[in-house]
Amino acid sequence: MTDPDDAAQRRLDANAAAGPLAELFTVDLTVAMATCAGCGNTAPLAAHPLYAHAPALVVRCPNCAAVVLRFASGGCRLRLDMTGTRLLTVSLAGAA
């Protein structure tokens, strides 16, 4: 018999994501690999063209020029749009 509370107990408060996400946002993204959601091209984020002279930082795919990532701070908010990134892979320093 399944305890009806099991699912509720397994579902963590979103605050529990803060720790792991803090880890993500302190890593050096220059070594991250990004896969374009548009064409599937995978390349180091550092090898992507970056357009900084806009209302946001706009990172584009080196293969198809689609937007893979947008980041901005303004209006007392940070905003990150990764609609155009299918996958972001970051190697952890010291990991075997």
Binding site: P49, Y51, H53, A54, P55, A56, V58, R60, A65, V67
Partner: peptide
């Protein structure tokens, strides 16, 4: 006349 660009 600043030029802002978000792409090529």
């Amino acid at each position: 006349f600043p030029v802002l660009s978000a792409g090529p």
